[in-house]
C-alpha cells in the first residue's frame, strides 16, 4: 500500500543524504521524494511516498526518527491530508493540434507557460492521479519532456466535510 510520509528536518547538507541513504541502504523503495525549505529558516520539509507492508512502513518511520537531524515524522496515510503534485509537460504542438491541446488543458485547469511554433509547455497541479491523467491525455500529441515534483503533502486541519 502507498504511504505518504512527511518529515520535518534540519536543512543541513547531510540530512537529505541520510534520508535517501536510509532507503537505499535498507532496501526500501521510494516512489517519490520532494525536499524544500520549511516553515522556519534552517528547516526543510521532505515528503516521501513509499510502498510497502505495514511492518516495512513502521520500520521506515522509526528509522527516519532516529536520524539526528529529523525533528518530526508523520505518516499521513491514515489521517486526512492534502497532497499536490506539480508537473511541467512539454508537448509537440502544430498549428492544427494547438487548440485541441488547449481544450485538454482547460479540462485539467492546466496553465500554458511557454509556447513556440512547435511546442507547448504546460503546468498542471493536483493529486498524483490527476497529473497522471493529464499526462496520458497529452501523450497522443507527442510528449517531449516531463518534470514532476513528486507529492508534497500536509496534514489537513479542516475537520468537517472531508
Amino acid at each position: 500500500m502507498k504511504h505518504t510520509i512527511s518529515v520535518s528536518v534540519q536543512h543541513s547538507f547531510n540530512a537529505l543524504s541520510r534520508i535517501v541513504g536510509l532507503f537505499s541502504g535498507r532496501g526500501y523503495k521510494i516512489d517519490s521524494i520532494s525536499f524544500g525549505e520549511g516553515e522556519e529558516p534552517g528547516m526543510a520539509r521532505v515528503t516521501i511516498t513509499a510502498s510497502g507492508d505495514e511492518q516495512v512502513i513502521e520500520q521506515i518511520t522509526k528509522q527516519l526518527h532516529k536520524i539526528v537531524d529529523v525533528h518530526k515524522v508523520a505518516d499521513l496515510t491514515y489521517i486526512p491530508f492534502v497532497e499536490r503534485d506539480l508537473a511541467l509537460i512539454k508537448v509537440k504542438a502544430t498549428p492544427t493540434s494547438r487548440s485541441e491541446i488547449m481544450q485538454v488543458c482547460g479540462v485539467f485547469r492546466a496553465q500554458i507557460i511557454d509556447i513556440t511554433p512547435k511546442t507547448l509547455t504546460i503546468e498542471v497541479t493536483g493529486k498524483k492521479d490527476k497529473v497522471d491523467a493529464a499526462i496520458s491525455m497529452l501523450r497522443p500529441f507527442g510528449i517531449k519532456e516531463v518534470a514532476r515534483t513528486g507529492s508534497v503533502a500536509l496534514k489537513r486541519e479542516f475537520k468537517g466535510l472531508t
Binding site: 547531510n14 543524504s17 541513504g21 537531524d69
Partner: peptide
C-alpha cells in the same frame, strides 16, 4: 569520508 561513512555513523559533521 562523511559520504563514505554515512551509513555506519550515528551522525556526522563537516
Amino acid at each position: 569520508i562523511v559520504g563514505i561513512t554515512r551509513p555506519i555513523t550515528k551522525h556526522s559533521y563537516l
